[in-house]
C-alpha cells in the first residue's frame, strides 16, 4: 500500500472538545487517520496528549464532546506497562489481557530476543528494569497484527539503541499499510512522512 492512501480513514475524530478543571485543552479538533500514516501528537506537559489518546482508543467515554469512529482493531500502549510482576515475560505475552491472538512459543521467543530480552524469557518480571518492561511491550508490537497502534510516550525509559529499533518498527508498520498515532516530545528520526498534531497551537500538519 502506498504511503498516502486515499481510502477510508481507519480512525476519524470529529470536533473533539475537552475541558479539564475549567481549562479548555482542545476545541473543535477534527482529523482523519488513514492507513499508512504516522501521526505524532505534540504539546506541552498538560496539553492533553494522553487524554486525547485515551479518547481515541475508547477508554474515555464521557466528559468530552465530539465523536470518534474507529474501523479497525487497535493496539494501545499506555504509561503503565500492564505487566504482571509475578509472571515471566513469556507468560505475560502468552496470557496477555488485551485479547491478542494466542502466539506460539517460538514466536514469543523470537520477539523477545529481537527486543533484546534474550535470556530473560523465564525470569520473573519484577526483577526486570523499567526499560526492560517497556521492551516487553515492544515485543507486543512485533507480535501484534493490529493495523492501528496508539502509543503513549513509547520512548520513555528506553535506551538509544532501543529508540532506533522502535523507530524502525514504526516505519515498517507504516510501510505495511498500518497506522501509528503516538505522543512524544522527541523528534522522530524516521524516513517516512510524519504528520503532526500540536495540541498547544491546535495545528494539524
Amino acid at each position: 500500500m502506498s504511503a498516502d492512501s486515499a481510502g477510508a480513514p481507519v480512525l476519524a475524530a470529529r470536533s473533539l472538545c475537552l475541558e479539564r478543571g475549567g481549562r479548555e485543552l482542545f476545541h473543535d479538533l477534527s482529523f482523519d487517520i488513514c492507513a499508512g500514516q504516522l501521526w505524532q501528537i505534540e504539546g506541552a506537559n498538560g496539553a492533553g496528549k494522553t487524554s486525547l489518546l485515551r479518547i481515541l482508543c475508547g477508554l474515555s467515554r464521557y466528559g468530552f464532546d465530539g465523536q470518534v469512529e474507529r474501523h479497525v482493531p487497535l493496539l494501545y500502549l499506555g504509561h503503565q506497562s500492564a505487566l504482571k510482576a509475578l509472571l515471566t515475560p513469556r507468560e505475560n505475552l502468552a496470557f496477555h489481557v488485551s485479547g491478542d491472538s494466542r502466539y506460539e512459543d517460538e514466536k514469543i521467543e523470537s520477539a523477545l530476543s529481537r527486543v533484546g530480552l534474550y535470556g530473560y524469557e523465564d525470569v520473573a518480571s519484577h526483577t526486570l528494569s523499567a526499560g526492560q518492561h517497556r521492551r516487553v511491550n515492544l515485543a507486543r508490537l512485533l507480535l501484534s497484527d493490529a493495523p492501528l497502534w496508539l502509543l503513549d510516550e513509547p520512548f520513555t525509559a528506553i535506551d538509544k539503541a532501543g529508540v532506533e529499533e522502535l523507530e524502525a518498527l514504526l516505519v515498517s508498520q507504516v510501510a505495511a499499510g498500518g497506522s501509528v498515532v503516538m505522543t512524544s516530545h522527541q523528534t522522530l528520526n524516521v524516513d517516512c512522512d510524519v504528520r503532526f498534531l500540536n495540541l498547544t497551537t491546535g495545528l494539524v500538519a
Binding site: 482508543c57 475508547g58 477508554l59 487497535l74 494501545y76 499506555g78 504509561h79 503503565q80 506497562s81 500492564a82 505487566l83 504482571k84 510482576a85 496477555h96 489481557v97 488485551s98 485479547g99
Partner: peptide, 10 residues
C-alpha cells in the same frame, strides 16, 4: 499496573 485498561480494550 494498567492491565485493566488493556482488558477493556480487548
Amino acid at each position: 499496573d494498567g492491565s485493566l485498561e488493556q482488558l477493556l480494550l480487548a
